[in-house]
Amino acid sequence: MISRIFIACLFLGMYSTGSSLSCKWIVKHPGNTKSQFSLYNKIALDFLDMMITNTTKDAEIEHNVAFPNRLYRQTSKATAEDKLAFTVQILKELLALFEEDHSSASWEENTVENFLNIVDKQTEELRSCIGSHSNTTQKGQQLSFRREKYFKRLLNKILKKNGYSAEAWEKIRNITQAHLRQCEFLISLRTAH
Rank of each mutant, 00 (worst) to 15 (best):
V112K: 14
L97F: 11
N117S: 08
L91K: 12
S76Y: 10
L97S: 09
E109G: 01
T111G: 05
E100I: 03
T123F: 10
S104K: 13
S104P: 01
H102Q: 14
F86S: 04
F115E: 08
A85N: 02
N110W: 05
F86I: 06
T111F: 05
F98H: 15
F86C: 02
D101K: 00
S128K: 14
T123E: 14
E81G: 15
D101T: 05
E113P: 03
F86Y: 04
S128R: 14
L126N: 00
S106L: 15
D101N: 13
N114D: 13
E93C: 08
Q122E: 11
S103P: 01
S128G: 01
V119N: 09
D82F: 11
L95F: 02
F115P: 00
A80K: 15
E113S: 07
K83G: 03
E113Y: 01
E124Y: 05
E93S: 15
I90A: 00
I118A: 11
E100N: 11
L84A: 08
T111C: 05
W107H: 08
S103K: 14
E100T: 03
K77S: 08
D120A: 14
K83I: 06
L116W: 02
N114P: 04
S104V: 04
W107Y: 11
A96P: 02
T87C: 01
A105C: 14
L91V: 12
A96F: 04
I90T: 11
L95V: 02
E108Y: 08
W107S: 05
Q122H: 02
W107A: 07
T79N: 05
I90G: 06
V88C: 06
S76L: 05
V88I: 14
T123H: 07
F98N: 05
S128A: 14
N117T: 05
F86G: 00
A78Q: 07
E93T: 05
S106T: 07
N117F: 00
E100F: 08
K77M: 13
E100C: 07
A85E: 03
L91F: 08
A105E: 09
S103A: 12
E108I: 09
L94R: 13
D120H: 07
V88M: 04
T123S: 11
F86L: 03
S76M: 06
S128T: 11
A78Y: 07
E100W: 04
L94N: 12
E125F: 06
E125V: 04
N110M: 02
N117K: 07
F115H: 07
Q122M: 12
K121G: 09
Q122T: 06
F98P: 07
A105D: 11
E125D: 10
S128N: 15
T123L: 09
A80I: 11
D82L: 05
D120M: 03
K92G: 04
F115Q: 08
A105Y: 09
A105F: 15
H102K: 15
E113L: 04
E81I: 13
V112G: 00
